[in-house]
Computed example of a mutant assay.
Amino acid sequence: MTGTVLVTYGTTNGSTAQIATAVADVLREHGLTAETRPARSVESVRSYDAVVAGAGLYAGRWHKDARRFLRRHRRDLAQRPLWLFSSGPLDPSASERDVPPVPGVQKAMARLDARGHVTFGGRLEEGAGGWVARMLLRNGKGGDFRDFTAVGTWAARVADELTRV
């Protein structure tokens, strides 16, 4: 593949955007052209040869911008290679074991014939927006549980699939 990969994301406090940027960086290191954009700003995916879409998990659901992205572009997404990632567990579980996609993402994977999914740890730090985030922080549930080595390993596997002849 010599075309462009869209790496898009839904996020509230920026943690998932940083993961998406790391994924795009690895794709570029493997010789691919990758563009990172917030899901709500993507008007069309037709100019992309493949898509990686990710979202932060909130109360067991993907961020609304990413859910809307999948719905809005479902026909075009079903016609190109697609990978999904989630970020969210505020504990080390995502680094310790394979965390399956939440039910809504499982359905989207089947409907869109996605090639894969991974769940990465999330980040919640002081200053995060939203009352739920503030409540979690008050209860000591904050921290940064993202594993950028795991992000890089997964993104390299995506790149390998895309560049395989």
Rank of each mutant, 00 (worst) to 15 (best):
D160Y: 05
N139G: 12
G122P: 03
L90P: 04
R40A: 08
Q79M: 15
M1I: 13
V99T: 03
A108T: 14
S15D: 05
V45M: 02
Q79R: 14
K64M: 01
G14F: 12
E29P: 02
Q18E: 12
T11E: 06
G10P: 09
E43G: 09
D160E: 10
L70M: 08
S86K: 07
D65P: 02
G3Q: 07
R123G: 00
E125G: 02
L32R: 04
D65G: 06
L32M: 08
S47L: 12
F148G: 11
W62A: 10
L84T: 09
G14Q: 08
G104A: 15
R71S: 07
I19Y: 12
R72Q: 06
T149C: 11
T11S: 13
M1S: 12
I19Q: 09
A66D: 12
G143K: 00
A24P: 11
R37Q: 10
G130R: 04
N13A: 08
G10A: 12
A20L: 05
V102E: 13
A53Y: 09
D144H: 00
F145H: 12
V165G: 14
L124W: 05
G88C: 02
S41I: 12
D144M: 01
R164F: 04
A24I: 15
S93Q: 14
G130V: 08
S41Y: 09
S86I: 10
